[in-house]
Structures are given as C-alpha cells and as structure tokens.
Design a protein around this nucleic acid. Structure first.
Lengths: 331, 331
DNA sequence: CTGAAAGCGCTAACAT
DNA sequence: ATGTTAGCGCTTTCAG
C-alpha cells in the first residue's frame, strides 16, 4: 500500500505538498499538481482515512441510535438522516439498540472514544432518562415528545391526536375507544393527552374502560379487538396510536363480523406506505418521517460546528389524512 | 482529554504497561493493575479509538450497501447484520445508496481508504455489474440471485416462485397472471424463470400478455390491476413478485368489484409483517430476511479473518405460507 | 512483568 | 509555493 511518502518520492516533492495538493489544490502550483496527480495514479495511492481522522481528531461520523431498525417509521427517519449526512460528507454508524440500555451505552461510548462526533437518538425521551442528553455529548432527539430536554425535532403529538379525535367527535361519535401504546411510552402519554383534550372540549367524559393497552405492534392491535368485541356496547370509533395496530384492528374487527367504517371507524397514526393500500384505506396522521430525519441531521451538524443555533427545538408540521376507515356512525 | 501518557504518569508506570493492562490484563501484575484502574478512574480516561484503529490498521467496521433503507425487507436484513456485528465487536456503517452507482462507489472507497474492512451488498447482482465483487475488496452479497459471483447468501428464488405457481396450478388455476418487478431486475428474472418452469411442468403455455410489469412498489401493483381488469377474460390468479404489489393489487381489484380470493387468487413474495394482518391475509413466500443478514455477516467475518471458508455460497430455506388470498377458482 | 523507544500515515506550523 | 519537522495517541518490539 502506497503512502503519502511514496507519492512524494515519486513526484519529487515533499509530503507536505502532497497533503496540500489533496486538501487545498489551489494552493499548489499547477505544474506540481500535475506531478502529484501522475504519481498518485501511477502508485494507485489511496489516502489512509484512518490516519487522516486520527490526525485531524474528528471522525466525520455520527451514530444513529434506533430502538429497532426494522420498524418502518425509524427506517424512514434514518433515510432522511443519511441523505443530509452524505451531503455533508459524514458517515452514519448504525446503532440498533434493540431496546437495550446496555447497547445504547456502548454506542454513546463511541463518541466518548472519538469514533463518532455526535448522536441522533430515535428513542423517544422518557422522564428521568439517564443516558441522553449529556452536556459533554452533542446529540439530537428525533421524533420525540413533549418536554424532551435538549435539541429535538418532532411533531406535536398532543395536537395531532386531539385533531383526530375531534374529527371523530365532529362526525358524531360519542364513544371513542383507544388502542394505545405501552402505558409508560412517551408517545402513548402525549397522544392520550390529546385524546383527553378533545373529549374534554366536547364535554365527553373520559372512560378508561375503553382504552386498551397495546404495544405499537400488529398483534397487539388484533388482540385489543377481542376486548372491544366482548363489550355489550362497543365504541363506534377507535383511535389507534399507530398504523400497525390500526391495520391489525381492522382485520380483527372484520373477522368478528364488524364492518369498518360502517360499524366502527378506525384511525391510525404515522401513515405508513401500506395505509393507503389496505382495505379500507386508513385515516391517519402523516408524520413527516423523512423530514424529521433530515432536520435532525441538519441540526446536529449545526451543533457540531457550534454555530450555537438560535433554534434547537423544531416542531414540524404533520398532515391529517382522511381516508375510508372513518365515517359517520350509524345511529 | 486525558491520554494514555497522563494515565501512565498518574499511575507511576509506563505507557506500555497501561496499554497492556487494557488489552491483556492477565499479563500485568495485580498490584499495578489496581494502580492503572485507579488512575483511569481518577482521570476519567477514555482510550482514543481513532488512534487505536489507526495504529492497528483495522477499522472493525463494515459497510452495508443498501439500495433503500426504507424498504422493509432490507431493514430486516440489516437488523440481522447488526445483531452479529455487535456480537463480533464490529460497527456497521450505513450505505444508503438510493440506487445511485455514484454513491455506491463512494462507499466502496471506504474500504479502499481503510475506513471499513468489508462490505455487505444488499443490491442484487446484475450481470455485468462493474462494482462488486472485486478481488481486492472483501464483500458478501446478501439476498441476491442465481449466478451471483462471489460469496453470497440468498434463497432460491426460482424454486420458490415455482412452488407458488405450482400450488396455484394445483388448485385448478390455468390462467395465472403475473405482476413482476422491473424487467431487468435480477429478482424479476429468477422469479419469472420459476413461474415459467411451473407452467411448463403443467403443460401450460406461457402467455406474455398476462405478465404486467411493476417495480416492486405499492402503486405499481395497484396500477397493474387496471390492465387485468380491462381484459375480456382476466386470469383467475395473479402471482405478484412481492408483497407490496400483492397488497396493492388486492386493493385495486376490490375497488373494481373483484373479490379476492373468490374471483381472483393473489399471492405475494417476502412475507412482510403486514401480510398476515391485511384483508384477506396474503399467501406468500416467507424470506428469512433476518437470517440472511445474520448469515451474511457471519460469512463476511470468516472472510475477514481469512479462514478461507469452505462454503461461501449459502442458499437458505424459505417458507411457503398459505393464507386467505388464494383459493380454488370458481369455474 | 515492566520500561524505553520507535513509528503507524498524515497534517500543520514554521521556515525558506 | 514548497520543504522540514514535530508530533497526534497508541501499540509493539526489544531489553532488562
């Protein structure tokens, strides 16, 4: 493997000049530039980036902490992150934590040991979180919730949930069930808050017995329908806290003889690709996942180049998409 | 930032001893080990991994080349890769190429410049591919097709497709349409080959007019149904080359007044999570995506530690999952 | 078991 | 504009 010294020798120049020719070509005479180029080609020289990084003390790498990369929402956020990282000349190290705090720590250690310059955290912030943010580590929280400390890019989950539920109420629904995420999940809390706000505004009393806990996965949505189906008087609409549970719920209800939306309206949250292709198509909140990723990366890079950005808290707009799964109640 | 020299000074030892204490503690006296530990704690020393990597000339990093990370199949493969990479102490650099050859080259350059030790390529191999495999770069192709050169982990797409179509024929279908991927996509070719093989075996003549080209995305599945719906005598079954197109096709057919599977049977390929929760649930080939990722990573690590593995071509088992979307034809 | 010292490949003063 | 040189922080001989 040829080194910069070999190139210098071949070109009859010094290593310093080669280095400059590579980083700031306009500060090297055209004549020598040509020589350098020729030598590089001849020796098939490739700079050792490991050395470069070591020397320059900056890794040009960010790590993305993600609870589960096989979750489509996260994958879309990451896609956005990658787009701007590439533009900025950064690499992204994947930190699939599989929801383990231990693994999360390992990845945080990467910036402590210089392997990465900063972190984008896709796990929503939980009160009392021990890990991030930390003052000595530059990080951005992507897709998090209300009251997330530190730099954050997210949507207003409370408002979005409220909008959905108010819409259902506007259609005439009075008994609106919920399939939630795990009780202590931050998104669950935000979205439940919005749900309650909407009820309150309409003068409907909150009834905990029609809130069924899920875990954001398909099967839990299916599962929840068992509970609703057994009720003497099931709700006429169900607000599901994500699309996966909503789609599974539609399946479960159909299997039990309910029609969506005729008997029960269903709404989701996220807007996955499939949500406009399932039957019936799903009314939902479209989160700008890709945008959240892009904005997070942009914010992180601002932080990294310590421009001390004025804004470190971005609340992005979402869309409320009305499709076939929601309708006026029968009676 | 404390360096190893600071620790040495603090502990009253040499840097060599500190280094050894960190890498091979059993070769350092317990007494000094304690001193080292104390010094490290006191100074809050974190080894500079950039330096370590530079010195040891190995990055302990692999890059995963992926055409589109927001594609669930790829995301699942990556999840598998991550699992074993973490176990082996490797980091994974995400190479979302967004289908651009230029970007692909940039990522390949990372191993040329020592930033990464090897590559796992999720883009299926196309005949005449200029990029990978290369003799000077260690790489594994994951989820690729027949005749892929170099180390590869995949399923037998031809056989799987044949199995699906033979099953449909067995049910009594004689006119079986196809929604394919792009014509020059390697997966399209393999699966079409399997389709033809099944027809041939049953003595059914191949009819290109009922093969509609899609692109593996939802909308193209929906789109294709327009063509089928306009036919005087539409097929009684459609073999879709992935689940996304299959789900969209079911939607499209339903909207046009067809019932699945009563009027038309639909089959998919991949087995996404949603495929068992849509209505009707989808008959499909379950690709072991996570496994493909794990095996690819294992193979790459073998290659990296040049054990010169006996097997470098893994054809993994898949499952054929029969669900509600396929049935005996009406007439 | 421990210390001394060389050097990985590159960059960045500094001098010319 | 170019060359010289001193390291970056760590590992790894080689002696002792």
């Amino acid at each position: 493997m040829a080194t910069i010294r070999d190139v210098a020798k071949e070109a009859g120049l010094s290593t310093g000049t080669i280095s400059k020719a590579l980083s700031t070509p306009d500060k090297v005479s055209p004549k020598n530039l040509a020589k350098v180029e020729a030598a590089i080609k001849k020796l098939n020289y490739k700079p050792n980036m490991l050395s470069q990084k070591f020397r320059s003390k900056t890794s040009n790498t960010i790590v993305v902490l993600v609870p589960d990369i096989a979750n489509l929402f996260f994958a879309r956020v990451i896609s956005g992150i990658e787009t701007v990282a590439q533009k900025e000349g950064f690499s992204v190290l994947l930190g699939d934590t599989k929801d383990s705090i231990e693994r999360e720590k390992e990845f945080v250690a990467m910036v402590e040991t210089k392997l990465a310059d900063g972190i984008i955290n896709l796990r929503p912030y939980k009160a009392g979180d021990a890990l991030l943010p930390r003052k000595d580590i530059i990080s951005v929280s992507a897709g998090s919730c209300e009251n997330t400390p530190g730099p954050v890019v997210r949507i207003d989950n409370v408002e979005a949930a409220q909008k959905v539920v108010s819409y259902l109420i506007g259609l005439g629904h009075k008994k609106i069930g919920v399939i939630s995420g795990l009780e202590d999940n931050p998104h669950t809390k935000d979205r439940l808050k919005g749900y309650k706000l909407a009820l309150e505004k309409a003068g409907i009393k909150f009834d905990p017995s029609i809130v069924v806990e899920g875990d954001f996965n398909y099967w839990s949505g299916l599962n929840a329908t068992e509970v609703f189906a057994r009720m003497a008087e099931p709700p006429t609409a169900i607000f599901c806290m994500n699309d996966q549970m909503a789609i599974a719920a539609m399946k479960g209800l159909k299997d039990k003889g309910f029609n969506v939306p005729e008997d029960i309206s269903i709404t989701g949250f996220d807007d996955m690709n499939v949500s406009r292709y399932c039957s019936p198509t799903l009314t939902t909140i479209a989160q700008p996942a890709q945008k959240i990723g892009e904005k997070s990366a942009e914010l992180l890079f601002e932080l990294l180049t310590d421009k001390n950005p004025a804004v470190t808290d971005y609340v992005l707009p979402y869309e409320f998409v009305i499709r076939e799964s929601s309708a006026i109640p029968k009676n």
